[in-house]
Design a binder for these strands. Sequence first.
DNA 1: TCCCGTTGCAACCTTTGCTGTTACGACTGC
DNA 2: GCAGTCGTAACAGCAAAGGTTGCAACGGGA
Lengths: 144, 144
Amino acid sequence: MSANSRLTLAAHALAWIGLYQRQGHEVATSEQIATSANTNPVVIRRLLGELRRAGLVESRRGVGAGWSLARELESMTLLDVYEAVEPGPLFAMHRTTPDQGCVVGYGIQPAMQGIYEGIEETLRHELARVTLENVLRDVLAAPR
Amino acid sequence: MSANSRLTLAAHALAWIGLYQRQGHEVATSEQIATSANTNPVVIRRLLGELRRAGLVESRRGVGAGWSLARELESMTLLDVYEAVEPGPLFAMHRTTPDQGCVVGYGIQPAMQGIYEGIEETLRHELARVTLENVLRDVLAAPR
DNA sequence: TCCCGTTGCAACCTTTGCTGTTACGACTGC
DNA sequence: GCAGTCGTAACAGCAAAGGTTGCAACGGGA
């Protein structure tokens, strides 16, 4: 599976903004977050843009601009973040339509479709159990 | 997520071989399976090679060669197939190591690591609940 | 009114992984 | 020896993600 770091990076950004705000700052810049994540500010802006569309963060422009949380970390779950940054399904069907004249080729897609739906529902449920507050607590609990 | 059709294709191939054997045939060829899946025989051989390494199928060479199941479909689960064809973890960490001098950059990877492990364990449990026999039954149950 | 720092966004390149394709050697029953 | 199939390497094509550059838009302050 082409492993995807978008969820990790989004959680990183949210935890960073949340911690920064608790330290008394109003907004965080993509530059600061990019430094922490060791990547490019544009990558952060793109990702935070998706989170903004999902209502998780807000952005201000002009002087003293930057990003702030739209909700408390306690009320954000990894499922919210996952849905904001991961569009497609977990498992894909065939690239090309199987032979519809073959019994297996005809029935395989509806069969796997149904199975995958149940599995993804369970995945969503698991993701919904973890709040960004949990994430930040785990981050701060890392032993030095 | 770069959606991955390997699990779907592997399930297709196993269901095809299983059904073919129940119809009284000894072995199935990669050519036949490729026709059903509407792809290239080499793609099928590569994938079945991974399933062979996992002990799910066997192959014979020479005249009258082909593939056969190494176990009954009832004793194979989607987890067996998943582990055979999907090497990496479901969610990836950052591409580049985050800033270890930053509290969040330092703690984010162990934090997400622990969270992801729990989620993947649940995913494995779900995959283990579905046997290839279930898959074949669903395939044959597709309405014409 | 101008300046400055930041977001918003488009365009492009590079890398990576999967898939498709061709080619050919290895094997085995006849 | 022949024919049919696997086993595998090599390469091209394609798509997605990430990285990079460039620049317009915004808005508070001087």
